[in-house]
Simulated scan of single mutants.
Amino acid sequence: MITNEQSRTRIDEVQAGIYRISTPLFGVEGGFSFNQYLVVDDEPVLFHTGPRGMFALTADAIGNVLPVEKLRYVGFSHYENDECGALNAFLDKAPHAQPLCGTINAMINGDAFDRAPRVLSDGESLGIGQRTLVWFDAPHLPHAWECGYLFEKESATLFCGDLFTQGGAEHPAVTTDDILESSEAMRKGLDYYAHAPNGGALLDKLLACRPALLACMHGSAYRGDGAALLLALKGRLRPAIVPA
């Protein structure tokens, strides 16, 4: 559903109770997109905030599903403008919301948050009602020491941040088509991976969850054998990393 005709921001349910909010960016060569994900439960979670300048667009889209004030957690993979640029604006709007992040993120960036974060250690679970979220540390995968990901157990959804970043401004909300080749084209063109030596082991940790939905921050979400896709990505990275 389009929620802003001018920006073409839209919100779509990509899994029962999980919504993808997407704003296309046409002003760069080839186009791009910024996605955030809303998880509806007793304690709703927003994963990624989008850039600070997109706060109103994202908040308006959320308002089509639930009042922004009801957000309980605002999570993000690592400290970057498109990940958490609007974090404090959401904290101001939602009086009971907390940042949700890993231990390294809280240690090195916590002073930038207007409210103390709910910190999750590697492998720690958080119940939000009928759903359970699990945090996985993933330093430098693809970049940033504090990087990590959330996995929603009930739907087997992996909120996988910058993994499988796809170029282009407009995409279907969810696809069963291959996203590896388009994401590899982006990776090879921009080389935004840190090439960490433990990248293979980190991908093994994620694929062991056997995700059925990969909720990407740029491009379409992918529905299918997420473990196979993560394994294929590991194979593509092998020349640059030392597999476990």
Rank of each mutant, 00 (worst) to 15 (best):
V134C: 09
V134N: 00
D137Q: 09
G127F: 05
E152W: 09
E152T: 14
T157G: 09
P142N: 01
L158S: 01
L126F: 00
S125C: 15
L141R: 00
W145F: 15
L141P: 02
D122S: 13
L120R: 00
E146C: 14
L141S: 07
A116D: 12
V119P: 03
L126K: 00
P139H: 07
L158T: 04
A116M: 06
A144H: 12
S155D: 05
F113S: 05
W145G: 02
S155L: 13
Q130E: 15
P142S: 03
A156G: 08
W135C: 13
G127S: 14
D114S: 09
F159G: 08
R115W: 05
G123V: 09
E124R: 00
L158G: 02
L141Y: 02
R118D: 06
A144V: 10
A116G: 03
E152R: 09
A144D: 14
P139I: 11
F136D: 12
E146G: 12
F159R: 03
W135H: 13
F136R: 08
F136E: 08
A156W: 03
V119W: 00
F159S: 10
G129N: 08
T132Y: 06
G127R: 05
F113K: 00
R115C: 02
E154L: 14
A116V: 11
F151V: 10
W145N: 14
A144G: 02
R115I: 06
E146Q: 14
E146L: 09
G127K: 04
D137E: 15
E146Y: 10
V119G: 07
P117E: 04
G148K: 04
V119I: 15
V119T: 13
A138S: 14
E146N: 14
Q130L: 12
R115M: 01
D137W: 05
Q130H: 11
E154I: 13
L150D: 09
A144Q: 08
G123W: 05
V119M: 07
G123P: 08
L120A: 07
V134K: 02
L126Q: 01
W135P: 10
W145S: 12
F159Q: 02
A138M: 06
L120W: 01
H143G: 03
V134F: 02
Q130Y: 05
I128H: 06
C147L: 10
E124P: 03
S155V: 06
R118N: 07
E146V: 14
L133A: 10
L126D: 04
W135G: 10
R115K: 07
F113T: 08
C147I: 03
S121D: 13
L120S: 04
V119L: 07
C147T: 13
E152D: 14
P139D: 07
G123T: 12
G129E: 10
P142G: 04
W145Y: 14
R118W: 02
D122Y: 09
S125F: 08
E124V: 05
Q130D: 15
S125R: 11
A116R: 01
L158F: 03
I128F: 11
W145P: 11
L126I: 04
S155M: 10
L158W: 04
A116T: 08
D122A: 10
T157R: 04
S121P: 00
F136P: 00
Q130M: 11
L150P: 09
